[in-house]
Design a protein around this nucleic acid. Structure first.
Lengths: 129, 129
DNA sequence: TTGACATTACGAATTTCTTCGTAGTTACTG
DNA sequence: CAGTAACTACGAAGAAATTCGTAATGTCAA
């Protein structure tokens, strides 16, 4: 099963993935401790089990206490979600999304500079071809 | 109820909204004709009814055949969805999303130019303050 | 007016999402 | 070794999403 076959994570699943990306491989309890207070242990456990079924996380069962890690990196997932949003809400235009994100937010001067740098890089690469 | 209270549209709902944004106020049948072939009439009808309940669309019942229109503009919805994604998958960093969208796609030279133009505009505005 | 037809309303069936309770299992502690 | 603590497995329950079938109703032509 290729990575692109992974389903889009739901909101709840994403909040768990965020923890795993930040912490690296983790047990249920470790994830739980970083979740919103009031979250139940078995709720997190169940999600991780479901996510393992879906292929969103891998499970190491070699020890008594299972250890979960993300199946896809944060970047891969971000890419997938972004591409998805572009297709679903922006008629496939990445440009539209970028313009929307830029206008709808207050990015710092450094952020803008970094974006310019990436633009330069892309255009340089494009020119070289 | 303020616009920001509108729920995030599901995938199916979004595909209907896309039609409404393109066509403007439409009947069930008109929407149906622009949906993927094989879609059932009552399926579209039901979605529009649910969406009306949720506030995602407004319904004009003055005529026998009801006419539906989006409650929020394409831009507003795009803004909401983008902000949502930034929060859920990019730790609140719009910059990250922009960089991801830019690197993960092949934007045309004009697209890039347009983005630069917007960057200029933003920085000009920022400088004026 | 009476069909024929299009439309809306209603609700049912199925799937997924979300949350938790409970039961069973393993490991440690006194 | 008994008891407790922690963990996994299982399933249930409610809400939402998705898709349609069927019934009820209004419209218009013959």
């Amino acid at each position: 099963m290729s990575k692109s076959d992974l389903p889009r994570p739901t909101d709840s699943e994403l909040s768990i993935l965020r923890v795993l990306w930040r912490r690296g491989p983790s047990t249920v309890r470790e994830v739980l401790e970083e979740m919103a207070p009031g979250t139940g242990y078995t709720t997190v456990l169940k999600f991780l089990q479901i996510m393992a079924e879906k292929g969103l996380v891998r499970r190491d069962e070699s020890r008594r206490t299972h250890v979960y890690r993300p199946a896809a990196s944060r970047e891969e997932t971000q890419r997938k979600l972004t591409g998805d949003l572009i297709k679903r809400a922006f008629n496939g235009s990445a440009k539209s999304l970028v313009l929307q994100a830029l206008s709808g937010t207050k990015a710092s001067a450094e952020d803008l500079a970094e974006i310019r740098r990436l633009l330069d890089e892309i255009e340089t690469k494009k020119a070289k071809r």
